[in-house]
Design a binder for these strands. Structure first.
Lengths: 147, 147
DNA sequence: TAGAAAGTGTCATAAAGTGGAGGATTGTGT
DNA sequence: ACACAATCCTCCACTTTATGACACTTTCTA
C-alpha cells in the first residue's frame, strides 16, 4: 500500500529531469521497480503513479469495450496523456517536453504526496488551486471526514 | 486507546528536532512502533498522531475516488499538510522545515496532550488561542458537557 | 555528413538529516 | 536530606540527500 504525503519544493535540472525527494522515493513499492507512470492531470499538473498503482486504473479503462464509441473517446483522451518513465540510478526521471509544457514547469516544481500517487505542479499554479480560505477547507474536511 | 494529557514546555535542537516528553512517549501505543504522523492544524499549530490513530483518518480520505474533482481538492489540501516522522532511539523526531515555518516554531515549543493526539505550538501563539476568561471557559463547558 | 539538440550517466561538493554519548537537571523513594 | 534513577539537553561525528557541473551518447536537422 503506497503512502505518499507532504509537499516538497524540487528543482528540475537543465535537461528537465526531476529528482524525487528521498521521502517519496523511500515509499515507492518494491514491486514497481523503477517504473513509474506519468499522467496529465485534470488540473494543470502532472500525476505520477508507481506502476502497481497505475495498473489498477489501467485495468479499469482498458476493460471498457472498444466497440463502444464513448468508451473509445475516453480511452483515446486518457491514453494520450500517459507516459511511462524510469528512475535512473540517482533517483531522477526525465519529464517529456510536452508534459513540462502542459504543466508549465520551469526550474521549480512542487511535489505533493497524495496517498497512492504524486502530483507535480508549477508553484504559481499550485497556489491558485489550493484552498486559501481555512473555513472552506475545514468545511470540506468536515463534510467528507466527519465520523 | 491513546490517552495524552497535560502541557509541556519543550525545546527544539539546532536541527529542528523535538524530544517528546517522557509522559507522552510512555503513552504511545505499541502497535505504532516509532511511527508518527504530523499534520498542520487548522490553527497555527502542528498535530501529532500515533500511526494507528492516523490510519483511521487515512483510510477515509484515501478511499475517496481520484476522478472526482472535489475529492481531489480535499485530498490535495489534506495531504500537503501531512508528514510521517519517526522517533529515533532517544525519543526525538525531526519536524520538517515547512512545518516549523507553518507553526512558527523556533527554540521553544508547547506540547499539549489532547487525548488521542498531541498538539505542538509556538508559545506566544498558544497563549493567543487559549481562553483567558474563566467565565467563557465555564460557559463553554456547560454548553457542551452539561449532562 | 557535420553540427546542434536532447537524453543519459557519473562525480564532487555542500547542505541536511541521523544517531549516539556525556553531563546537567529533575524527580522519586527511602 | 540523601542517593539513585530517569529525563532532558547539548554537542559532535557520521551518513544521506540535494544540486550543479561535466562529459558522453543518441537523435534530429540542415
Amino acid at each position: 500500500m503506497s503512502f505518499f504525503t507532504s509537499e516538497y519544493e524540487c528543482k528540475l535540472d537543465a535537461k528537465g529531469r526531476l529528482v524525487l525527494p528521498a521521502k517519496i522515493k523511500g515509499n515507492l513499492p518494491e514491486a514497481s521497480g523503477n517504473e513509474l507512470v506519468l499522467r496529465r492531470g485534470f488540473e494543470p499538473c502532472l500525476i505520477l503513479y508507481p506502476m502497481v498503482e497505475f495498473k489498477k486504473i489501467y485495468s479499469k479503462i482498458s476493460g471498457l469495450n472498444e466497440f463502444n464509441e464513448e468508451y473509445r473517446k475516453l480511452q483515446r483522451n486518457f491514453f494520450k496523456g500517459i507516459a511511462t518513465v524510469e528512475l535512473d540510478g540517482t533517483g531522477r526521471f526525465l519529464i517529456p517536453k510536452l508534459m513540462t509544457n502542459y504543466a508549465q514547469l520551469q526550474k521549480e516544481a512542487i511535489v505533493v504526496g497524495m496517498g497512492n500517487r504524486i502530483e507535480i505542479w508549477n508553484p504559481e499554479q499550485y497556489d491558485k488551486y489550493l484552498i486559501n480560505d481555512p473555513g472552506e477547507f475545514s468545511a470540506l474536511a468536515q463534510k467528507y471526514l466527519d465520523a
